[in-house]
């Protein structure tokens, strides 16, 4: 299973409090998995931990990708390995244009993979950026704006997917990329993600709404509750949750523990 992201018994603490209490999940490349679950159950914690945010303390567990336990790597090294996180709340970097930032990021990744790399020629980069912006219905002038600075909620989400399109990761974690998007923007962003789908990309879609899954068809849907994956199933599971909410999962869980 080298062509998968394998999370084993991941336990994570933040400020002394255990948030993830043993997460197990395997995301093969080429597949799309969704994670749903009530607020505050640890979905973003999982996303940040996978990317290596320094505030999250791993107590136990492993995350394997390409033969490495990525928990031992720095965030930038994880990115070089092909892992990407579309942030739930992207931060602004005033004074740094999207174009400058993306070219710096792309070149850093190319250099990490090949120390001899001289960087992407400017003309080629411009072409690439223009192409990806067109894919996401973005105005070309957007590249000259300061990164996330004064962006609307929808613009931020679109900019995250633009970054994914340019950097071409192998594992992409989308943390609530659908929230804050209007219906048209949702469709455009979903189309953007779909255009990147292929045997070389695994996607983890964290969402509260079944709606985005109409556009980005998942192979597997997981339910996370209280720091664990408690239920997994096909796309129908999302529809079921949309209809019934989470109480039945919780009841089922309590039933299980009573039996145990």
């Amino acid at each position: 299973m080298t062509d998968a992201l394998v999370i084993r018994n991941l336990r994570v603490r933040i400020e002394g409090k255990e948030i993830l209490k043993g997460v197990n999940l395997t995301l093969p490349k080429g597949e799309v998995h969704a994670i749903m679950g009530p607020n505050g159950t640890g979905k973003s914690t999982l996303a940040y931990t996978l990317m290596g945010h320094p505030s999250y303390e791993v107590v136990e567990g492993e995350v394997w990708f390409k033969g490495q336990n990525i928990l031992e790597l720095e965030p930038d090294e994880r990115a070089h390995l092909g892992i990407f996180l579309a942030f739930q709340y992207p931060v602004a970097i005033p004074g740094v244009t999207i174009a400058n930032f993306l070219r710096t990021a792309l070149n850093a990744q190319r250099r990490a993979r090949d120390p001899e790399d001289k960087g992407i020629p400017i003309a080629e980069f411009r072409k690439l950026l223009k192409e990806k912006m067109a894919l996401l219905n973005m105005d070309p002038s957007f590249g000259g704006r300061y990164l996330n600075d004064g962006f609307s909620g929808g613009e931020k989400k679109r900019a995250e997917i633009l970054q994914m399109a340019v950097l071409q990761p192998e594992i992409a974690i989308l943390d609530e990329t659908d929230s804050g998007l209007d219906i048209d923007a949702l469709r455009i962003v979903a189309q953007g993600v779909n255009a990147l789908r292929g045997p070389n990309l695994g996607v983890l879609v964290i969402t509260h709404y079944q709606r985005i899954l109409n556009y980005i068809q998942p192979d597997v849907v997981h339910v996370m509750m209280d720091g664990r994956i408690v239920e997994s199933g096909g796309p129908d599971l999302a529809l079921h949750l949309e209809e019934k909410g989470y109480s039945w999962v919780r009841e089922k869980l309590e039933g299980d523990s009573v039996l145990a």
């Binding site: 965030p75 930038d76 994880r78 990115a79 970097i93 710096t104």
Partner: peptide, 16 residues
């Protein structure tokens, strides 16, 4: 962290 998550090493992130 945001910049590092995109593959930019720490010192270069600060420079940016």
């Amino acid at each position: 962290f945001y910049l590092r998550a995109r593959g930019i090493p720490e010192v270069e992130a600060k420079r940016l």
